[in-house]
Design a protein around this nucleic acid. Structure first.
Length: 902
RNA sequence: GGGAGUUUAGCUCAGCUGGUUCAGAGCAUCUGCCUUACAAGCAGAGGGUCACUGGUUCGAACCCAGUAACUCCCACCA
């Protein structure tokens, strides 16, 4: 195989991905090996790859590739989520462009369009993941609306209904007027919005003139004229509201019973401005006296708190809004107008009528739909709910007792807080795209829950003898579908068909899965609920570790988003830096749970790393072996072997703690510093000279091992190099992706420490060269007076080569008039053809001496302190003694040096 | 309003049980090199009041209390 002179990832990345696919290396079937399973957090089927996916899936791929190389049966299940609201919104928009309105379609027709859309655009994101190198078992690609997946959802619904955990009820829900569906609390995003606070005057009803206003039953606008004429002359009270368009839905005005300002109005009624309906003044401590005017308009239909107040005070509910957020006829005025337009118009009307006292700028939190970004409207409606309390308890325990580990652990607190305050889950959505709720309504309004209409009919007949005559045609199925999360919470089970066939070979083998990699934002939406479902269906956790990634931000710390336009296109990055480069770039600065400040520069570093590996390869590949040569690099070889073992132990430890960026950094330094900068330089033959067999063989083996350690991070370049004949003739199926990860052996720490000193010697020599502006090509003589136990004879070769030394001698006496330096306690001398600057040399030694004296003083202070000697651990004290002895030895050498200067 | 977290070099982060020779890494910066693997490079260097204030301790980046700034989550003040 001919290898390119330059590192050009585009030349081989696609090639290897196809080859891996062809060879079915990603595919997994149960066997006798230990399984290692990851299920992908399914992205939206119509989604496009963004930086968050890149990070998330890079991490998953590193984990899965590593497991595969460690001999596990690695299975990464990919797939997509039907994302009901988001996808339905996209389909509706697409149809609208074609001039088709959803209203004009039947459910079946609409779903046909939706499936067309899904088949056309769905799964683009999965294709993009392939570019990144994601080694998913694509044969297992699942979709949350696949027939067996949907069946699991329906079965779950029925199961929980039978347990009494699913019920119907009228509730105030978060209504998305754009999606025309309810959304869950978790799907509401609160944002601070600049608003206006409108101060509106409500005329107090004069008891003498109106019949019986206290009962609040006067509902029509019959006395509008009377009211308007009275406004100028009578008492009024002022309320402050941000939503003047809802005054027509007011059921009462509420003040705090302790508020002296309103004592005189207790028991009275007021007119709703513009429509003149009479409503009572009530008292409740809920109202804050210090906010606004201390008067609250109570609008049970359009505000959650007001709704609760309404229940408490038995107030009527007047819903003036349509599903799409426009005003209905109950509003009496501005009928058909959108709520926001109505707000502006009503302000004008109030102004004209003399009811608007003033407006103030006001900031407050408003909820927005996560899916459509429409302002959420609190709305009363009939919904399906799932009880959470009983499921939350075991799900909390799994995390608290450590059966499921959250990484990093700080999320445990957040998780607990949420699980202890969990509220029932609104699981119905007023959409078509999703699993239709398996409930069937009888003509009399009763309903039954059943899997099919036939079963429903039987259930209905059991329900009452009156239903004996019913036929399937008399039953109508619930229109609503379930929340998307009601399908994705089954994901780790249903991808292995574990609901319908709870004892099948696949689920028994792969479940529980090992690691889940996801974003902290969906810890509750998804992670918590998967744990609940796992417990409910299998009595077991769905995964053992949850690795929570951070949010990808730009270098200014802003969240990457389409609207800000600060997110680079991941595929462009891959084109520019190669998938390996982008993977390394992303991983370098992304500890678990911390946001990553993404900077394209990180990818430059990533691709530079690829370039470095490539060039190290070219160097080794260029060597010719001469079998007659004697091996002279035994020390270098032994050193690197030990250094490799040491680094591998560190990397293993980092992985065990899910410190992926540190594992990568340790690998990076092992390759770049230890292997390239030191080892290869130590053994590199002179230009165009051959190398001995022993060194060559070891070097090739080292290189292979490095490629293996690198593979999970940089799969493409490692596979490309792996197949070069440099590493021997390989069977085409002998790929690095399925190679065995090396294991580490014994570590000789003394040798490693000695070599560190030797490296220090080399650095000092280079330093002197730099300072004296001597060319690296000019060989210099070097002498050493040994005071330590290091055997410099063994290292002479390395020092001579890396320091470009002409002659290396071991001496017993100091060399006068030479440039000197210390490495630990050993004294080195480089005689140069120039007079040594005695004064400067003296000064250097004086400085060193001063420092050592100060240091000794601090050590002595400790050792002379009785309490230190009494309290500190013996090994700490021993260490202090050693520090003292070392410093004294060094000091003696320096003092001797100073004496020699006279 | 409640809760959690963060604060260490210009940037991004390590620093594991409080104790190795005045706190480490990568990137960036500076100096010198186009030295036949690599200028996407090589060799070297500089850079820190560990947010602040107190306390505990023989000893604190680390433990405790308080302060400040920032981030995230939760919450109905119209």
């Amino acid at each position: 195989m001919s290898i390119s002179k330059k590192y050009q990832p585009a030349e081989f990345e696609d090639k290897w991905y196809s080859y891996w696919l062809e060879q079915k290396f990603f595919a997994s079937v149960p066997d006798e090996r230990e399984p290692y399973t990851i299920v992908i957090p399914p992205p939206n089927v119509t989604g496009v790859l963004h930086m968050g996916h890149m990070l998330n899936n890079t991490i998953q791929d590193v984990l899965i590739r590593r497991a595969r190389m460690k001999g596990k049966n690695a299975c990464w299940v990919p797939g997509t989520d039907h994302a009901s609201i988001a996808t339905e919104a996209k389909v509706v928009a697409m149809l609208k462009e074609k001039g088709i309105s959803k209203k004009d379609l039947t459910r079946t027709e609409f779903l046909e369009h939706a499936y067309d859309w899904k088949n056309k655009y769905g799964g683009i994101i999965l294709e993009q993941l392939k570019k990144l190198g994601a080694s998913c078992d694509w044969d297992r690609t699942a979709f949350t609306m696949d027939p067996h997946m949907s069946e699991a959802v329906i079965d779950t619904f029925i199961h929980l209904y039978k347990k009494g955990w699913i019920y119907r009820g009228v509730r105030m829900v978060n209504w998305d007027p754009q999606g025309k569906t309810a959304v869950s609390d978790e799907e509401v995003i609160r944002k601070e919005v600049n608003q206006k606070l409108y101060y509106i005057k409500y005329q107090v009803v004069d008891v003498a003139e109106s019949g019986s206003p206290e009962d609040g039953k006067s509902e029509s606008g019959e006395d509008v004229d009377t009211y308007n004429s009275q406004l100028a002359t009578h008492n009024y009270l002022t309320i402050a509201t941000t939503r003047p368009e809802t005054i027509m839905a007011d059921s009462a005005i509420c003040v705090n019973p302790n508020d002296e300002r309103y004592f005189h109005l207790h028991g009275k009624s007021v007119y709703v401005p513009l429509i003149g309906r009479v409503i009572p003044l009530i008292q409740d401590e809920y109202v804050a006296m210090d906010f606004g005017t201390g008067c609250l308009k109570v609008t049970p239909a359009h505000d959650l708190n007001d709704y609760e107040l309404g229940i408490k005070h038995k107030l009527p509910v007047i819903d003036i809004l349509n599903d799409d957020g426009t005003l209905n006829e109950k509003a009496q005025i501005l009928v058909g107008e959108d709520r926001f337009i109505a707000r502006k118009k009503i302000a004008v009307l109030l102004e004209e009528a003399g009811n608007l006292e003033k407006t103030e700028d006001y900031k407050s939190q408003i909820g927005f739909s996560e899916r459509t970004d429409a302002a959420i409207e609190p709305k009363l409606s009939m919904q399906w709910f799932c009880k959470m309390e009983e499921m939350a308890k075991p799900a909390l325990d799994y995390v608290l007792n450590g059966e499921i580990k959250l990484i990093p652990e700080k999320f445990i607190n957040t998780y607990r807080h949420w699980m202890e305050n969990v509220r029932d889950w609104n699981i119905s959505r007023q959409l078509w795209w999703g699993q239709q709720i398996p409930a069937w309504y009888l003509p009399n309004g009763d309903f039954v829950v059943a899997k099919t209409v036939e079963e429903a009919l039987e259930e209905a007949k059991k329900l009452s003898a009156d239903n004996a005559q019913l036929t399937a045609a008399d039953l109508t199925q619930e229109e609503d579908v379930v929340d998307t999360w009601f399908s994705s919470w089954l994901w780790p089970i249903s991808v292995f068909n574990g609901i319908a066939e709870p004892d099948n070979a696949e689920i028994n083998y792969y479940y529980p899965t090992n690691d889940l990699v996801t974003a902290p934002e969906i810890l509750f939406f998804w992670v918590a609920r998967m744990i609940m479902a796992g417990h409910e269906w299998r009595g077991e956790v769905p995964f053992k570790n949850v690795y929570l990634t951070g949010i990808v931000r730009d270098k200014l710390g802003r969240k990457m988003s389409k609207s800000l336009g600060n997110s680079p296109d991941p595929l462009d990055l891959i084109t520019k830096y190669g998938a390996d480069g982008v993977r390394v770039g992303m991983l370098l600065s992304s500890p678990a749970g911390n946001d990553i400040m993404f900077d394209e520069k990180d990818c430059v570093q990533g691709s530079s790393f690829g370039n470095k590996i490539w060039n190290a390869f070219l160097l080794v590949k260029g060597w010719e072996v001469d079998d007659s040569l004697e091996g002279k690099n035994k020390i270098a070889i032994t050193w690197f072997e030990n250094r490799f073992n040491q680094a591998l132990a560190e990397i293993e430890d980092d992985f065990a703690q899910y410190r992926l960026s540190e594992a990568l950094m340790a690998t990076y330094k092992l390759v770049w510093d230890d292997f390239c900068a030191w080892y290869l330089e130590m053994i590199k033959p002179v230009y165009q000279q051959p190398i001995d067999r022993e060194t060559y063989t070891h070097t090739i083996r080292f290189f292979e091992n490095l490629l293996k350690v690198l593979h999970p991070f940089t799969p493409f370049i490692t596979e490309e190099l792996w197949h070069d004949e440099l590493f021997g003739t390989r069977d085409s199926k002998d790929c690095i992706i399925v190679a065995q990860m090396p294991t580490f052996g014994q570590i000789n720490t003394q040798l490693l420490a000695d070599v560190e000193t030797v490296k220090l010697v080399v650095t000092q020599i280079r330093n002197i060269r730099n300072n004296k502006q001597l060319s690296p090509k000019e060989a210099l003589p070097l002498s050493v007076k040994i005071n330590s136990a290091i055997d410099y004879n063994a290292y002479a070769g390395i020092i001579t080569k890396l320091g470009n030394i002409s002659e290396f001698t071991i001496i017993d006496e100091k060399l006068e008039g030479a440039n000197a330096f210390l490495a630990q306690t050993d004294e080195f001398f480089i005689p140069l053809n120039e007079t040594v600057d005695v004064a400067a040399e003296k000064e250097r030694l004086e400085k060193e001496k001063e420092y050592l004296l100060g240091f000794l003083k601090s050590v002595d202070a400790k050792l002379n302190n009785e309490r230190f000697v009494q309290n500190a651990k013996p090994e700490i004290i021993e260490n202090e003694r050693k520090k003292k002895a070392d410093a004294e030895a060094k000091l003696a050498i320096i003092v001797a040096g100073l004496v020699s200067f006279g």
